[in-house]
């Protein structure tokens, strides 16, 4: 504080004052983030170098041994793989569906616009406990979904939805789609308001089909929003806990469990190993950050 700042000749006193005022505006929000997110995360970093159960923790020998331990942890590898399966299937599927729905809703001739929008968005207002319960009941062996499929003659005997790896993952992805497609749709719908209609009309006059006009004219203009939703959804999926915990309970045989769910198990169900849990959380953080960087590199060219 006491050290005098080196003189910066090019900045006028007025500019300097403006800049300081600017920092003052940032202060409350930044302090809260630094205090309540970054500071605990630093403590978690220290914790990730410690081993021991319960409160009997000591620094590991070598320090990074929790991280090397991850490489031998079959459950960790399985949950990491599961999480990536969700990421690769669910995020693109959801974003494409949201994009299509938003485009349909953006049609000026569409009737009952707000009814459609409301109906499709509402699921994202439903809390975890509620929706997990409803889904579990619907996908039970003698639940509604099986009743309906059998009624339609599509299957002969009930499908054991949550009891098989493939179908359990499918139900989980379906749940995610149900809850979050409408949410992303709203973002696209908003972005579409900024798309210049005349560019689409021009493309159509040049003979492009609606689908082509959408793909070549509309979508590029939505790029910043697609990038934003992609980063947010990637982040959400890599930290996915709710669905794995409450909907499939990780089963069968951990094949639908996510990393965050495993993190919770290591911390609270098993004999608690917080050093190791912190190492797992850092792996999540690093993967999310790496993917965000990649997405930004691919997507954004501003600045």
């Amino acid at each position: 504080m006491a050290a005098p700042l080196p003189p910066r000749p090019k900045v006028s006193p007025l500019e300097r004052r403006k800049s300081l005022t600017g920092w003052a505006f940032l202060l409350p929000a930044s302090l809260l983030i630094l205090w309540l997110s970054f500071w605990p995360m630093i403590q978690a970093a220290i914790l990730s170098l410690q081993t021991g159960r319960g409160t009997r923790l000591s620094f590991a020998e070598p320090l990074w041994s929790n991280y090397t331990r991850l490489l031998e942890d079959e459950t960790f590898k399985l949950t990491l793989q599961n999480t990536f399966i969700y990421l690769v299937i669910q995020v693109p599927l959801m974003l494409v569906m949201a994009l299509i729905l938003a485009n349909l809703l953006n049609n000026p001739n569409l009737r009952f616009k707000s009814m459609w929008r409301t109906a499709i968005f509402l699921p994202s207002a439903v809390g975890l406990v509620s929706y997990a319960l409803v889904f579990r009941t619907m996908f039970a062996n003698d639940g509604l979904v099986n009743d309906m499929l059998m009624g339609l003659g599509l299957i002969d005997s009930p499908v054991n939805w949550l009891g098989q790896t493939g179908t359990a993952r499918f139900v989980l992805v379906l749940g995610l789609l149900w809850r979050w497609t409408g949410y992303n749709m709203i973002f696209y719908l908003a972005a579409l308001q900024t798309v210049d209609r005349s560019t689409i009309e021009a493309a159509k006059i040049d003979g492009a089909s609606s689908a082509k006009a959408f793909w070549y004219v509309t979508v590029p203009q939505l790029k910043p929003m697609i990038l934003l939703t992609a980063i947010l959804s990637t982040n959400g999926t890599l930290q996915l806990f709710d669905e794995s915990y409450a909907l499939t309970a990780g089963g069968p045989a951990n094949t639908s469990m996510t990393i965050s769910h495993y993190l919770y198990m290591v911390s609270f169900r098993n004999s608690p190993n917080f050093g190791y849990a912190s190492a797992i959380s850092y792996v999540i953080l690093i993967i999310v950050a790496a993917l965000a960087v990649v997405q930004l590199k691919v997507g954004d060219k501003r600045d």
Partner: peptide, 20 residues
């Protein structure tokens, strides 16, 4: 830098937060 905060898994910060 602040945006990195979005990526912090909550389960990891829970114990330190509780202590705070």
């Amino acid at each position: 830098f602040l945006l990195l905060g979005i990526m912090i898994p909550f389960a990891a910060t829970m114990i330190p937060l509780f202590r705070m």
